[in-house]
Design a protein around this nucleic acid. Structure first.
Lengths: 116, 116
DNA sequence: TCCATACCTGCGCAGGTAAGCAGCTATGCA
DNA sequence: TGCATAGCTGCTTACCTGCGCAGGTATGGA
């Protein structure tokens, strides 16, 4: 196992073999960035409140989310736009009301974890 | 169930009862902030790489982490300081080498989730 | 004693991000 | 047709955050 890239192969290591294990453990950089972005979406209390509300009570309208979270409407709308762009939530239009729900299964899994 | 705070009790709702459900689903603001901060620590690719390496291969020295992740030493040190201040990792000194490991069980649970 | 190594810290820069405000579009009702 | 409501967008401001550089501390060996 010589997983250390050439540009840093000459650096001294403390536990050489464990460095290779660590590189294998980290895995692909793209997958890493994907997960980091996922966590980033949950890293804001307001967005997390929106997602928990949607995940646990089902589809909700924008203005109801604003009342439930204490945010004002544009803030909710902007947060939902971000989450929608990331494919985490999806909105369904009924008349002039849009009801959102969580559609990303990985994020749903993370939300299940917030039950301490 | 009238969980809507007084300062926004006069706002019009779309589905009044579901707003109350949503407020119950969101839960305590402090717990919410705690989870948001946890997610925030995992929201950086470099920190996530460090945590995955530590979680999956066990205790590792700072300079080995730098080689494995491609970061330079001060960046690793700063990231570990942040994680240590949050109680996520802990370091043990052996001579002039410090080996870190993940000690927060909630974060360990989240790291287990990154296996898609 | 001198030096190399392992790690830590402070500082400044660049880039990203959330919050609030004003204003816009679209739907439904009288 | 006129109007109120639901939701969206653009803009500005202030703030936060990650990174690299330079330098400092502590341990161990020559």
């Amino acid at each position: 196992m010589h997983l250390v890239p050439a540009d840093r192969a000459d650096r001294r290591t403390i536990d050489g073999h464990r460095v290779c294990e660590a590189i294998a453990a980290i895995g692909d950089a793209g997958r890493l960035r994907t997960w980091a972005e996922r966590f980033s979406l949950l890293a804001d209390p307001n967005r997390l409140a929106l997602l928990l509300a949607l995940h646990r009570t089902g589809p909700l309208a924008v203005s109801d989310l604003a009342i439930a979270t204490g945010m004002n409407d544009p803030a909710v709308s902007q947060a939902l736009r971000l989450l929608r762009a990331a494919g985490v939530v999806a909105g369904e239009k009924e008349g002039r009301v849009v009801r959102y729900r969580v559609v990303d299964t990985e994020v749903q899994g993370l939300l299940e974890h917030c039950t301490d």
